[in-house]
Design a protein around this nucleic acid. Structure first.
Lengths: 332, 332
DNA sequence: TTGTATGCGTTATCAA
DNA sequence: TTGATAACGCATACAA
């Protein structure tokens, strides 16, 4: 079932069939309708590979994400997918599981597949070899969640958001505030949020050294619980968590430690995953427009491709973050 | 950067370069190593579109899922992605948002792209036009989560699982058990679980008519709350939920209704999403091996493609479900 | 407005 | 063991 079949069946040349699908304006409406009818009857659809080979345009966007097990990225991918689909693009997502090696491999695969553009969440834009490869290949790309002056990014200002949160906490009486974060080396987002924490804590004249880095999710709850039950030092009255998954685990740790949230402990997450809204207590969180971040990334890419210009750092978008007060947070 | 460039640079024919990548055994090791070196230096990777066009094999698998916003499907996709990647296949996922029209469109897109096989979650295998199209196109496919005698499926026995749960609840004294389900028409999985509920309730001599169908997630909490606060009829002592997302919303509804879980009300979900394990209370749930379902689907597909035989209903796999006791469930 | 002919990068057939 | 060449399905420059 190729363009040949349709042409023969319709009694026209393959060029005409091709035009019907690509430049319908340049074919007599009578001919066009006839060909369309025949194509429909035959169930013909242009072969994507042949098209790509000929035009050097795949109508596909590559997506590189850490994992789909974190709803943040699932939500973002949902946005990417819907924006891409609406524009007639397909997507090819690959997950890295936070592995540099897999990040590299993913990028290589996507380049070989000739994707027209890439949306990626880089481990660390400043050091990522994969990112350098994308740049070298000349493939249009945009980073999501990352923030870096040398690359086009769609993100929220995590540093400012956390700093503002700390101020807010301090304003309602919290003095002992701890940060719970994932592996800092594996994510520039975590680093930004951590910077915001340190900065605002120092500015508020508080001890900024209570930072718990949780390397593995499996042991997160136990580690946080240990922090809460450490008798050597006064217990924090608030936990600022670098993401919502950690916040949810903090809620559990508090429960296991016999603490009531928010009475004995405030817990605030970061990401604003949709699920948090349905939890009890409703998860307090700095919200990011995850789906929108995905959609914007795609929009930027498509715009740049339409203009024929590469995306520059100047195109970077900082979307507004929000604060979901929720129920896991209260004055000290 | 094509095979031509490499051939010229290496001083061999393009046929030899091609062999180095496809039949390395049939080229002198000296020549092979030389070509490999040149290719590496040039950063050459075979063009996937040209390969697909020529071989009619895309090394890509299509995936059709309802949504990524439900962690069940995100977990499944994670399994599909990893299994596919390990086998050198890329994936092209499309979401339907539970729309029949989008399901159809997704399938059309994937066929046009010439995917070698498809893993799909059909709205309803018995009636899906999209599924008929896949069959007509001759594309190898396997259904995930669906169960249907006429199609190859990877799933758990949802009916038996829910029936066993109801027996278990009855055995520890629950008499007033309600089912909370999503739109039944949109999902054969929901229908199966509902059947299991009805069957076991009747067999236990209990009233099987307490079934709350929640059409829209936005209003789920309010609807469940209304059910719990309905004074016209005795309040259920247990809520069997058709999926974990509904169970989480039931937890919230119970809280809003002033009920303590599990003291006043038991809530049991279905799906076993990873997140449930970290909630407080730990979500009681019938667990499915979501990632494994994805991996198995891909394995079946690859096996069938290797054998050159189409997948038949006889290949269907029923994986074992489990029960996570959790903390949202207790004797009546 | 329509048709002919070329080439995109690759694999595979056939000869050497 | 290697090379020349045809063909995969399509879009497009050019001719008619």
């Amino acid at each position: 079932m190729s363009i040949q079949t349709v042409a023969r069946e319709a009694g026209v040349s393959i060029a005409t069939v091709s035009r019907v699908f690509n430049l319908p304006g340049r074919v007599a409406s009578e001919t066009r309708e006839h060909v369309e009818r025949v194509a429909l009857a035959l169930g013909y659809a242009p072969n994507a590979s042949a098209r790509t080979l000929r035009t050097h345009r795949s109508r596909a966007l590559g997506v590189v994400l850490p994992t789909l097990l974190n709803p943040v990225f699932a939500e973002c991918l949902e946005g990417i997918a819907s924006a891409a689909t609406e524009a007639g693009y397909s997507i090819q997502p690959l997950t890295t599981e936070y592995s540099i090696e897999r990040e590299n491999h993913a990028v290589g695969t996507l380049i070989a597949h000739g994707v027209d553009g890439m949306v990626m969440v880089a481990s660390n834009p400043g050091t990522s070899a994969a990112l350098r490869r994308v740049v070298a290949a000349g493939t249009p790309y945009v980073l999501a969640y990352n923030r870096h002056e040398a690359h086009p990014c769609v993100s929220v200002d995590g540093e400012a958001a956390v700093a503002a949160l700390v101020e807010r906490l301090a304003a309602v009486g919290h003095r002992r505030i701890a940060l719970v974060t994932g592996q800092l080396a594996a994510s520039d987002r975590a680093q930004q949020r951590c910077r915001g924490f340190r900065l605002a804590m120092r500015q508020a004249g508080l001890d900024a050294s209570r930072i718990l880095e949780v390397p593995f999710v499996q042991t997160a709850i136990e580690q946080i619980r240990a922090l809460l039950q450490d008798t050597a030092v006064p217990r924090p009255s608030a936990l600022v968590c670098s993401n919502d998954l950690l916040a949810i685990r903090s809620l559990r740790a508090a429960h296991l430690a016999g603490l009531a949230v928010p009475r004995d402990l405030s817990v605030i997450g970061f990401d604003g995953i949709a699920l948090g809204e349905d939890l009890t207590p409703v998860l307090s969180s700095i919200t990011q427009p995850n789906t929108e971040i995905g959609r914007c990334g795609v929009a930027l890419l498509l715009q740049a491709m339409a203009d024929g210009l590469p995306l520059t750092p100047a195109s970077s978008l900082t979307l507004a973050h929000g604060f979901r007060a929720g129920e896991s947070f209260a004055p000290a």
